[in-house]
């Protein structure tokens, strides 16, 4: 199984070398600073839309939400309005809690066999915690980077930075989000490598984005605190990209281009990978539909008529036995050879 994460480690190392050598030795700043980022953004945008449209084009023939609480039935029973939402408003709340707080993951348990053969299910919140830390740190880092793409830098962004570096360790102030991101991504990686069950199900496509994001965070932190690249130059390049006046300022340093290249690879890789869960979670039919399936009819756009065994066919096969058992029938038995008499007697009996 090692080959899966070895493959990812080697792939990211190669990407590093490609960008580093490309810039430091060959001088391909334009390629790595302008052409590839633009291309990556195009691939990401087109790819993302393509995937969403692809999913959206497949209809939802049946309404199949997973109900995780009491249904709406009689007034005496308290409905679990979020976990079994019967209105669109409550579905929205359910979705927000899924997307913002990873509510389903929060339920996570771990089975243990205790002595005496008793199974025990303990809450297991590490995965939820790592995942939450990872996503929020990543989001914060992403937002913080808007500083490179805006002029003047909006005030709320300045505020965010102040909050993010409130610990005031050293100079420049350490951004917590970067540290948390690096730590969370490392823990998620180690979890995959160390837990036998998770290692067993992990593919190269599970390790690769983790290693790549590690590389992004690592080069970022390297530049900010250790190598201290030319921030003004970096911003000039970034701002040039978004204002469609791309430039390559002198002397930003190769590590910066590695950082940008990693981000570009991540963007381009995104739409073709499991990272599309970002879009997919909004479209999951077990979560994003109301559970009032008996109250409001759901229409299947491709519904087609099917062959059924009609009551007439059923009665035709069993009529004799049904009449004998005094079960009501729609059509009486065909008359016996001596028709009139038989008919009369049966009527008389009734």
């Amino acid at each position: 199984m090692n080959r899966h994460y070895m493959f990812s480690l080697i792939a990211v190392l190669l990407l590093f070398l490609i960008a580093y050598v490309g810039v430091a030795a060959v001088g391909l700043e334009v390629l790595f600073g302008i052409i590839i980022p633009y291309a990556a953004i195009v691939v990401f945008t087109v790819g993302f839309i393509y995937r969403i449209v692809g999913w959206a084009r497949s209809p939802v023939p049946f309404r199949i939400p997973t109900t995780c609480g009491q249904q709406k039935s009689l007034p005496i029973f308290k409905q679990a309005k979020i976990d079994n939402p019967s209105t669109k408003g409550n579905v929205v709340i359910r979705m927000i809690l899924e997307i913002v707080l990873f509510r389903s993951l929060f339920r996570n348990t771990k089975v243990k066999v205790k002595e005496g053969g008793k199974l025990f299910y303990g809450y297991e919140l590490w995965l939820w915690l790592f995942a939450l830390a990872f996503h929020y740190a990543f989001a914060t880092v992403l937002v913080r980077h808007l500083r490179f793409f805006t002029e003047p830098v909006p005030q709320w962004l300045q505020l965010l930075e102040n909050v993010d570096s409130f610990m005031q360790i050293g100079l420049p102030g350490v951004f917590l989000s970067g540290v948390v991101l690096l730590a969370a991504v490392t823990l998620l990686f180690l979890r995959r490598v160390l837990l036998p069950q998770i290692r067993y199900i992990s593919l190269a496509n599970d390790y690769f984005p983790l290693v790549l994001i590690f590389g992004i965070a690592f080069t970022g932190i390297l530049m900010r605190y250790f190598i201290k690249v030319d921030v003004v130059g970096a911003k000039e390049l970034a701002y040039g990209l978004v204002s469609f006046h791309p430039t390559i300022p002198e002397g930003i340093g190769a590590v910066f281009y590695v950082h940008v290249f990693f981000v570009s690879v991540l963007l381009a890789y995104f739409p073709f990978s499991k990272l599309m869960h970002l879009g997919g979670i909004f479209m999951s039919p077990t979560r994003n539909l109301p559970t009032n399936t008996r109250e409001v009819r759901h229409v299947n756009p491709w519904s087609y008529p099917v062959k059924v065994h009609t009551y007439e066919e059923y009665e035709d096969e069993f009529r004799e036995k049904m009449v004998e058992a005094e079960l009501p029938v729609d059509k009486e038995l065909p008359p016996e050879p001596e028709e009139p008499e038989a008919d009369e007697t049966s009527e008389e009996k009734e």
Binding site: R51, G54, W55, A56, R57, S58, P59, V60, P61, I64, S104, L105, N108, T109, K110, V111, L119, L127, A131, L195, Q197, I198, I201, S202, L203, D206, K274, M276, H277, G280, I281, M283, S284, P285, T286, W302
Partner: peptide
């Protein structure tokens, strides 16, 4: 079926193999 069931298509694509489901299955246990 990929064309007719969004559920199938989305579920084929978005699993991140986090493993939260692994020991929730009675057959696995």
């Amino acid at each position: 079926r990929l064309d007719r069931f969004r559920s199938f298509k989305v579920f084929m694509d978005i699993c991140v193999r986090c493993g939260a489901c692994a020991d929730k299955c009675h057959f696995f246990i």
